[in-house]
Simulated scan of single mutants.
Amino acid sequence: MEAHLHRSKNVIVLLVLSVSLAATLVQSSATPVAGEKVKLALYYEALCPGCTYFILNDLSKIFDNGLIDIVDLKLSPYGNAKISSNGTIVCQHGEWECKLNTVGACAINTWPNVNDHFKFIHCVESLSDDGKYREWKTCFKKLKLDPKQVTECFTGELGHKLELQYADEIGALKPPHEYVPWVVVDGKPLKEDFANFVSYVCKAYKGSKVPQACRGLSLKKDSAKPFNNVCYKEDNNAKSKVLESM
């Protein structure tokens, strides 16, 4: 009797392990593992027309076409800003660029999941595109998000510390960035071909679960519409240019 019960328990344990293993295999086959994902980084700054265009019209598509499943997306909101001798950050497009860069940094820190913070940053960039960047706080209500953590980060010391970290990050790029948006795929800057980043991501992906966006796609050399509106690192007239375009 005891032997029968022992055998029954062993059968049950084996069944549980088999079901667990099958579930793991199904999950792993459906979602690329972290090591298979392609690293995609966007270095940008607020109020830069080319950055806004790229985020709203190009980068946002990867959340709809399945590319986000094979991408490890990193956003870096600092761009061409500089740190003065007294430690303050000076931005190309003036005070509001610095504020919105910090807002982006705080959003990323508050909601580390890219699906969460990208929605908020997309909302803020949409307002900027309409010349309503001063209304960035309305994105909390639009997206039904709690503003507490981002607001505390933005108004406190944390926001400034995060921006200094992003300053170090973009400053360490090799080769150095020349303008923003600066798009990097697996450590390689795409430079003037950044609008074709999907092709580069698909080519770099070595996994087995190829998303629809990559099927039948080949590297092409399209003219990047936002390239005319990129913000160069040493462009001292960026502030007046962006205000004229609004």
Rank of each mutant, 00 (worst) to 15 (best):
R215T: 14
Y179L: 02
A172G: 07
P211K: 08
Y166A: 01
P181L: 11
P176L: 01
N228D: 13
K206V: 08
N229I: 05
L173Y: 07
T155P: 06
P176W: 01
W182P: 01
S223Y: 12
G216I: 03
K188N: 06
G159A: 04
S240V: 15
G159E: 02
A213E: 01
G156K: 12
E234N: 14
A204C: 07
L173F: 00
S208F: 11
K225F: 11
D186A: 06
P211W: 00
S199F: 10
Y166V: 07
S208Y: 06
V201T: 05
V183D: 04
L190Y: 00
E192V: 12
D193T: 11
G156D: 09
P176F: 04
V185C: 06
D193V: 10
E178G: 02
V210L: 11
K174N: 01
D168P: 01
S199G: 15
N228M: 13
H177V: 03
F227E: 13
Y232Q: 08
K174R: 01
R215A: 14
E178W: 00
V210N: 10
W182I: 06
F227Q: 10
K221A: 15
D186I: 02
D222R: 15
A213K: 12
A204E: 03
D235M: 05
K209I: 08
E157M: 08
A195D: 10
L217T: 13
K174A: 06
Q212G: 11
T155M: 13
L164K: 10
Q165V: 09
F197G: 06
F197W: 04
S208A: 09
F227L: 13
S218T: 15
L219T: 10
E192I: 13
